[in-house]
Nucleic acid binder design. Structure first.
Length: 537
RNA sequence: GCGCCGCUAGCUCAAUUGGCAGAGCAUCCGGCUCUUAACCGGCAGGUUCUAGGUUCAAGUCCUAGGCGGCGCACCA
């Protein structure tokens, strides 16, 4: 929460991280043991307050008995998954003679008089603690009665299997590692309230196996992308998140302010311009995986901060980048889920290349049944075509923009299998170079998967004079009221004037790639702490 | 930004045309040495998201607001 001094994110307004917690139900402080004051035990919920108070009382009892409820260190000999893996089949009712020390969160207790069964969870895997009270030392037996689900505990004992064949550890000692104050969600139904899952991701991770699975997939995707890039000779770099002027994409930025410099800065909407300056400087192949921020609408596919992979490779054109894109997506799929043949939202999806390649113009011509479709058709004709298909248009738009709008409305959503939609018009592609054989379009592609844009790439524009003209056209659009249009970036132009080799550039939406591989439909399910309105009380 | 839907105990959910707010799990108390959604008995737990309104009576109907989900718009 604490921001570095001197920064102050002004948009959106800084959330109040320390709204007053008014204790409606008074909670007696623990008697004089120096314990921290109650965080917020006394919400309006009396039952919750009662539970928390009961657990505080247990902490007092523990301290009175000389047990530290929040000790400093613990050394397990094995993780729970390691124990499970090491003893795949212990015959029912047998003891192995092997002793282990394990740790985890207590997630269930089943008490049968003098025999107790505890369930310990670590790294998403459970193991049973088989606890005849007689097998425990005195301290552990006393501790047993003060344990609650949610507590972190350690256990040392023999690996065995119960009469029903459940792999178990029979502890001789139990150690409290951290006392939990709050109850766990329902052990059977778990936590299904979506808002609670997003706001309290830690709870989601404790009780929902699927949440853990999704973020494991995400982690493997990130590793796979890095491995593939490195194997292809790319160097990972980090470029600024604070930009003096927003650039590299058409999007509305977040504004912030630096106090010492007394200048407004923008959270980056794309790293593109900085990465290309590195290419101009002679770094032959670079990539960055990091956050971008766009101050625009939120939806199941858009979070205000999202993760992009961007890469630039000297000497390459967009055909090379298509090959790279296929390699990255295939690698991510294989490493993250073991196959390129996945199921997304109940429908099969093959991520194995090579992907279909089709021009934006031919796809749109087909969808509109206008084989004569061209970018230089009379604008009135194209506007009429938009009207026919109920596509909104504006007078400022030229033929390129009109055809792109038709494409997005009529074509994009229906492209299920991965498709390279290539050769976008110059009008909507200010940073891409003109096509080598068609002046109306650029050497650009978008890779579409399951009807959604997953990546965007082009043969980069490297001619500084043309780039200046494109910037100036954008600046005119901006002056005319287009808040997303680009501004002239002189520092970037200066780098291009130094000389930039032919370059192939790529951007892939990592969150969306994870969505396909984890088979989830809401981007918030692949972002640990998605942007939400601040909680109010 | 617009539309639709949702919000009831710590969690998951009920509550008939507007008629005494309930259950399961969890908690608390008692019992139980092979349970695994353990079981059995008992106690307790509520600002029904908020503020107004209609009504003899509102969880339920009306108005405004809050938060979330989904769809549309915008974008990656």
């Amino acid at each position: 929460m604490a921001r570095p001094p001197g920064t102050d994110v002004r948009w959106p307004s800084p959330p109040s991280h320390h709204h007053l917690e008014v204790a409606v139900v008074p909670v007696d402080p623990p008697p004089d043991n120096g314990a921290a004051p109650a965080p917020d035990a006394g919400d309006d919920a009396s039952k919750l307050a009662e539970i928390i108070e009961g657990r505080r009382a247990k902490i007092d009892q523990l301290r009175d008995a000389g047990v530290e409820p929040y000790p400093v260190r613990f050394r397990p000999s094995h993780t729970v998954p390691e124990v499970r893996a090491a003893y795949p089949d212990v015959a029912a009712g047998t003891e192995t003679g092997d002793h282990v020390t394990i740790a985890g969160r207590l997630v269930a207790k089943r008490e049968m008089g003098k025999l107790r069964f505890l369930v310990l969870r670590e790294d998403g895997q459970d193991i049973q603690l088989f606890c005849p009270l007689a097998a425990l030392d005195d301290d552990s037996r006393a501790l047993m009665d003060l344990l609650d689900t949610g507590d972190w505990i350690g256990a040392t004992g023999e690996v065995m299997a119960s009469k029903k064949g459940e792999l178990s550890v029979k502890p001789a000692t139990l150690t409290l590692l951290a006392k939990g104050l709050r109850p766990l969600p329902d052990k059977w139904h778990g936590l299904s309230d979506t808002e609670a899952r997003f706001r309290q991701r830690e709870l989601d991770l404790v009780v929902n196996d699927d949440a853990r699975r999704v973020f494991e997939v995400r982690s493997r995707v990130l590793s796979a992308l890095r491995a593939e890039m490195e194997e292809r000779g790319f160097v990972e770099v980090e470029t600024p998140m604070l930009h003096p002027i927003p650039g590299g994409a058409t999007a509305r930025p977040f504004v912030t302010h630096h106090n010492t410099l007394d200048v407004d800065l923008y959270l980056r909407i794309a790293p593109e311009l900085y990465l290309k300056r590195l290419i101009a400087g002679g770094m032959r192949r670079v990539f960055e995986i990091n956050r971008n921020f766009r101050n625009e609408g939120m939806s199941t596919r858009h979070n205000p901060e999202f993760t992009m992979l961007e890469s630039y490779a000297a000497y390459d054109d967009y055909h090379d980048v298509m090959e790279l894109t296929e390699g990255l997506i295939e690698r991510a799929a294989r490493d993250a889920v073991g196959t390129t043949d996945v199921t997304y939202q109940g429908r099969p999806l093959s991520l194995a290349g090579p992907y279909r390649r089709a021009t934006l113009l031919e796809l749109t011509a087909e969808a509109t049944r206008r084989p004569d479709l061209r970018y230089d058709l009379d604008v009135a004709d194209l506007r009429a075509l938009c009207d026919t298909h109920e596509v909104h248009w504006e007078h400022a738009w030229g033929g390129g923009k009109l055809i792109v709008e038709l494409y997005e409305k009529l074509v994009e959503g229906d492209l299920w299998e991965p498709t390279f939609v290539i050769d976008h018009p110059v009008e909507t592609s200010p940073l891409a170079r003109a096509h080598r054989s068609d002046p109306h379009v650029t050497e650009r592609f978008e890779v579409i998967v399951a009807g959604r844009e997953l990546g965007n790439a082009f043969s980069e524009l490297i001619d500084p004079s043309v780039q200046r003209e494109r910037f100036e056209a954008q600046a005119r659009a901006r002056a005319a009221g287009d808040a997303e249009a680009m501004v002239v970036d002189e520092a970037y132009l200066r780098a291009m004037e130094l000389g930039m080799p032919p370059t192939g550039g790529l951007g892939i939406g990592v969150d969306r790639l994870v969505m396909f591989l984890a088979d989830v439909s809401n981007i918030r399910d692949v972002i640990l702490f998605p942007t939400l309105r601040p909680e109010q009380t």
